[in-house]
Amino acid sequence: MNLRIESAAIDSLMVRLFDQIDEANMPWLMAAAENLRQAFGAQLIDLVPSYTTLLLHYDLHALSESDAIALIHSSLHNLQPLTNETGTLHAIPVWYHQSVGPELTTIAQRAGLSPEQVIEQHCSRDYPVFTLGFAPGFAYMGLVDEALASARLATPRQRVPKGSVGIAERQTAIYPLTSPGGWNLIGRCPLTLFSAERGSLLQPGDRVRFVSIDHAEFIRLGGDDTVMEASA
C-alpha cells in the first residue's frame, strides 16, 4: 500500500492506495473506508471506494482541503487490513442458459471448454465486491478465471434484462435493473438486487458465490425467463 492524496474537486479528495486491481486490496480498502468514516463523522458527505481508491467528499463548510488532508493522514496512519471477511458471503442463484445468456457458448468455444465447464468455473470461487457503480446496486466483482475473460461487446446492447449475469474482461456482475450494457451474458439471477426501499443487496467488501440452478428453480424464485436476442 502506498498512500497518495490528490485534489479531486472543491470538496473532494482522491485517496489512492494501490496501482493495480487485486483481490488483496479489498481488506485494506475496507479498513480505510471504516477509519475515514469514523474520522470524518458528520463532515463526511460521501465515500466511494473503487478498486484501488476511495473518493472522499467532505463538507466544505466545516473543513478546508488541508484540514481534510491532515484528517486522512491521521486516520490512515498505521492502517491494518481488516482480518477475516467482515462482509457478508452471498450465495447467488443463477440459471445459466443460452436463452438468457447468449454469450455462454461463445465464451465456451473461445476457451475450448464446454458450457458446463464454463458454468463450473464461474461457480468455483468466491468473488469479492470491489465497488458499486454504473447503476444503483451494480456490483463489480472479480476476478473470473483467465479462461473466461472476455472483451466487452463491440456494440453494447440497448437493453440488458434485469438479473442478467455478465463477464467483462476478468470482472463479473449482475445487472440489477434493465439497462443498456455491453457485458457478455451467461445467465440470469432471479433475485432483486436493488430497490429504493431496501437499497443494494451487495455491498463493497461482500463476497459472492454463484450457484447454478435449473429452470424450474429459477421460476420458483421469481425469475423472468424471457428469451434474449443474440448478440449484435
Binding site: 470538496d11 473532494s12 482522491m14 473503487s50 478498486y51 473518493l55
Partner: peptide, 10 residues
Amino acid sequence: LISEGIPLGA
C-alpha cells in the same frame, strides 16, 4: 486508468 469515483464537475 482503473475506474475510480467521479466528483461533481469532473
